[in-house]
Simulated assay, not measured.
Amino acid sequence: MSETPKHVTYEDAGVDTAEGGRAVDAIKQMVASTNRPEVIGGIGGFGGLFSAAALKDMDDPVLISGTDGVGTKLVLAQILDRHETVGQDLVAMCVNDILASGAEPLFFLDYIAIGHIEADHMAKIVKGVADGCKLAGCALVGGEMAEHPGVMRPDDYDLAGFTVGVVDRPKMLDPANVCAGDVIIGLPSTGVHSNGYSLVRKVIGVDGIVPGTPEAAAKKAELEQPLAELGGATLADALLEPTRIYVKPVLELLRGGAKVHAIAHITGGGITENLNRALAPDVDAVVTRDGAAMGWDVPPVITYIAEHAGLTPAEACKTFNMGVGMCIICAPEDEASITSALEALDEHPFRVGTCVPGSGEVRYSDDR
């Protein structure tokens, strides 16, 4: 005869629905602050509602979607107990990708998996998402907070995001438009952004460290010490600098009639494995590089990590953005006007390289 089952609640199993409700209450105003006129209702329903009115004046509206995460940068955020900016990283990784087609991001959704929900902790994370959405001009229309007791440590979490944007097909950017002779204009990154952190973690010695332990506290204190190599900044600050969101200046450039042929968002795989995605099959990109030096300023934190990892120039350019967050490709006769337009938008563009006949690959000026 079987024993009478013990009374076990959802909370006994490790899921605190009351705290989950408090977390939702804590983020409602942040979500509302991202609203666009097309948003219908608010969070709390079973789906995010967004009017298609934004599409009605287009000849042939094309919806473009993108999804991504923040990766192992989150491990560093947890060790340092700094969670306010990783949400911006999440938004940036998604909206910058669809921007490469010339799309305006319309709305965004996030997914947060966490070992144990605490309202204050969740509010810090979502604040970064809301900040990123405001920088991108898109609405945060919903998301999910999933508590995973027994699967994740209580303080462990992971982030994923999803965005939908729109572009009028006649104005959509296409790598097929890139020709030999075109020039490549770069926009600066804010540092490592959100790629290469598996290597970063090995270099700075945080692999295997569990957040919240004495070992993590000691490493946090070490990473918060100013370094001469970083101009007096700390590794903690430099490595958690959020990914830049390029949406507003680039859309302003495109709406001003700039004749842009293609755009590349420089993410995982660095310049080498992202710039090629914006090339026609019969064109190569030749990036200006003189030995280990680039033709522009490389953020000190990237130089620091690359040197301590012993990376060759080729390895560094295949791992990090090297100070180039986004590349804009245009005809040489349009370079001056595009550069001037970007400068008028408080950007700091620079020449990255040129396009030559080839087979869709990225080469460097010092290749032998």
Rank of each mutant, 00 (worst) to 15 (best):
L227F: 11
V210P: 02
E215Q: 08
D207Q: 14
S194L: 11
E215G: 02
L227T: 05
D207P: 03
T190A: 15
G232C: 04
P188S: 14
E215K: 02
E224I: 04
G232W: 02
G208Q: 07
A218N: 08
K202L: 10
Q225I: 14
E215M: 02
S198P: 04
L227H: 09
A228M: 09
A218L: 15
G186W: 01
E224D: 15
A218S: 13
R201N: 14
N195A: 15
K220Q: 12
P211G: 02
D207Y: 07
P211C: 03
D237W: 10
L187C: 02
T190E: 09
A217L: 01
A236E: 03
G191A: 12
S189R: 07
A218Y: 00
P188C: 12
T213I: 06
R201D: 08
G212Y: 13
E229Y: 06
P188Q: 14
V206L: 14
G196D: 00
I204Y: 03
G232E: 02
G191R: 05
N195R: 15
A228N: 11
G208T: 06
S194W: 04
V210A: 09
V192E: 01
A216C: 08
P214T: 08
G232V: 00
S198T: 15
Y197E: 04
V203K: 08
L230F: 06
S198K: 14
N195Q: 15
Y197A: 05
A228T: 14
A233V: 06
V210K: 14
P211A: 11
L187H: 02
E222T: 05
A217E: 07
L230R: 07
A236S: 15
L187S: 00
V192G: 07
I204P: 00
L227K: 11
L187Y: 01
V200C: 06
T190G: 13
